[in-house]
Computed example of a mutant assay.
Amino acid sequence: MNKQNPVKYWKVNIKYVLILLAIWFLVSYGAGILFKEELDTIQLGGFKLGFWFAQQGSMYVFVVLIFVYVRLMNKLDKKYGYDA
């Protein structure tokens, strides 16, 4: 098991985390609060889109981001030799 460059591994890991958290912030805060008025002009299942993002959309995006993070980390682990 050849573990290559742990410092670079953690830098990439932190980069992934920051990018994914920024996406979640934009969806939860941006779509649910900042852009609510613009999004409320669109309906989704009978509900205004701004309301939907504030109530459920950000949670769905968060769950999707967890799966994206797992996939990214599996690839990163294999690249740097940290896979089991």
Rank of each mutant, 00 (worst) to 15 (best):
M1D: 06
N2I: 01
K3P: 02
Q4I: 15
Q4N: 15
Q4C: 15
N5P: 02
N5H: 09
P6N: 03
P6A: 01
V7Q: 06
V7P: 08
V7G: 03
K8E: 13
Y9D: 00
W10Q: 12
K11H: 10
V12R: 11
Y16S: 05
Y16P: 02
I19W: 10
I19Q: 08
A22S: 13
I23P: 01
W24P: 09
W24E: 10
W24A: 06
W24C: 12
F25S: 04
S28M: 09
S28E: 13
G30H: 05
A31S: 11
I33Q: 09
K36A: 07
K36Y: 04
E37G: 12
E38K: 10
D40M: 03
T41H: 08
T41N: 04
T41M: 09
Q43E: 14
L44F: 10
L44W: 14
G45Q: 10
G45H: 12
K48F: 10
K48Q: 11
G50Q: 02
F51K: 13
F53M: 06
A54W: 14
A54F: 14
Q55Y: 08
G57M: 06
G57V: 00
S58L: 00
Y60A: 07
V61C: 06
F62Q: 11
I66T: 10
V68C: 08
V68Y: 07
V68G: 04
V70R: 13
V70N: 13
R71Y: 12
R71E: 13
L72T: 01
L76D: 01
L76W: 00
D77T: 03
K78M: 08
K78E: 09
K79F: 00
K79E: 09
Y80E: 02
Y80G: 04
Y80L: 00
Y80D: 03
G81T: 06
G81H: 08
Y82K: 06
D83W: 01
